[in-house]
Amino acid sequence: MLRILVSIKQVPDTTNIRINPETGTLIREGIPSITNPYDIIALSFACYLKNNYGGKITVITMGPPQAKSSLREAVEFGADRIILLTDRKFAGADTLATSYTLAEAIKYLQAEEGPFDLYLFGKQAIDGDTAQVGPGVAVRLQVPVITQTVKFETLDLEKRIIRVHRKSENGIEILEAKLPVLLTCDKGLAEPPFSPFPLILKAVKAEPEIFTADGPVNYQREKLGLRGSPTQVKKVYTPEVKKKGKIVDLSTTPLKKVVDEVIELLKSKGIL
């Protein structure tokens, strides 16, 4: 039986978000919260594994009390245990403090119910886009990490080996890893399942276990929240679109001329 841990985050729905051009800060007012889309992939993959190999899914999240709704959503993916890390002392955490807070909670859970075989994180959160928390937790747990996992191939439960595809700048890497391993999940790894009715009903009423800075995990206070976060945001700005495309109007230019022009352009850039 697989023991899977999924770490998720509730984020503002960035498809609706706007940036105040004067201050460079996000206008968060009235923006609905959603579960980070890459974390939905992680949950979907966990659900797939549980349904095909059997297992237990534990889901944790760190955030304000309202993050409970993301944990409830996790129940629709078959989560068996949901845990909310919430405390004012956790607030303002950068990726360093966040990975510390999460890793300590995971260590506590492992001491309580045995080690996990798989740790699933989203590739990155769409509000911060750092992609640092998954690897940060892996280091603290001293487990190998595969980032940007885009495809699952095989899982040998006896040999405890998983084979996945990882997207890199140079193409796709096909990797095998011995369990336990931490994966950060990217588009293509798994599709959200059509949840069964009983789980929908269960999710509405599901109440997460609450972990705070005071317990049950023993935290070093100075490593939490804003205090434990060395990152300083100097400036936030909207990147300007620098490269302008070239538009040729086909109604005024003959097609052949356009094609020739495109070939010339590609040649001049060294692409052809």
């Binding site: 349904n51 059509f194 009715f197």
Partner: peptide, 16 residues
Amino acid sequence: IVDRPRAFGDPRPTEI
């Protein structure tokens, strides 16, 4: 009869 099944992967809708 609802669109969701009783269990993952079950193609049948659920009767309530």
